[in-house]
Amino acid sequence: MSTDNSQRNAISIRNLVVDYGQRRILSDVNLDIPMGQIMVIMGQSGAGKTTLLRCLLGLKKPTSGSVHILGTDIASASLREINKVRIQMGVAFQGGALFSSMSVAENIQLALREHTNLDEKTIEIMTRIKLDMVNMLPAEHLMPAELSGGMTKRAALARAIIMDPKLLFFDEPSAGLDPSTAAELDQLIITLKNTMRMTIVVVTHELDSIFKIADHIAVMSNGLIIETGTPQQITASTNPEIQGMLNRKPRETIVDTDTHLRRLTGGV
């Protein structure tokens, strides 16, 4: 990987392999994510999207390969080095992962309190600015249990951007939301990219969202990245698996009758 490439790419993944016990979840994944762009990682359930995201976040040590994030290979880095990278990252988890014993504002302020020496007034103002960005200002003092699904995701997003990260990760931003709330979140992601110049990685299988927000798309299937490109390139792909995903066709499982019967009867 040349230095030029490292500088242009926020993330570079090379030959990434992840095994869980005997099962291979990711096989030789290679991917570059350019600075300041939105990369959507799409694929069917069980394709390995979440495992790839966990490797990017440093939550899962890969079996082999490298994951360069902002110039640091977090696959081989120490926890201290990984944490230096993490301070420049924000993550919005699928279920929000808000701390249930803290109010929305306290959740958002946590990273500021832990990593900066800002005074209380500044922390409060910064919290309100981020809450305002995600249209959550009135919910400042609510507890996570009092929020709807959409509000939870927006609060999680506010928490993710409180440190003005260079990189933002989103796990299934529109999963479980009604179409209009999902569209609001999509718009918010685009606004964040444009206003804060963030590199954003979104893991999702919601087609409507994907084509609305993506600058680049990586399509995953069975632990492999089978295609990368712009939304136009992916739409024009002749790969039958990608066309199946885009046209919402059910997966074909080709099993002969004898094998199928053996599976049902347990070989009796």
């Binding site: 976040l57 440093g58 939550l59 944490n83 230096k84 993490r86 301070i87 990252m89 993550v91 988890f93 699928q94 279920g95 992962a97 808000l98 701390f99 249930s100 946590l110 990273a111 832990e114 990593h115």
Partner: peptide, 22 residues
């Protein structure tokens, strides 16, 4: 246990906050 299964522990790690200390 609930913090673990609802990804709150992962969230702490991603914020570079040590779950052990916190």
């Amino acid at each position: 246990g609930i913090m673990r299964i609802t990804e709150q522990v992962d969230a702490l790690e991603c914020m570079a906050i040590s779950p052990g200390k916190f």
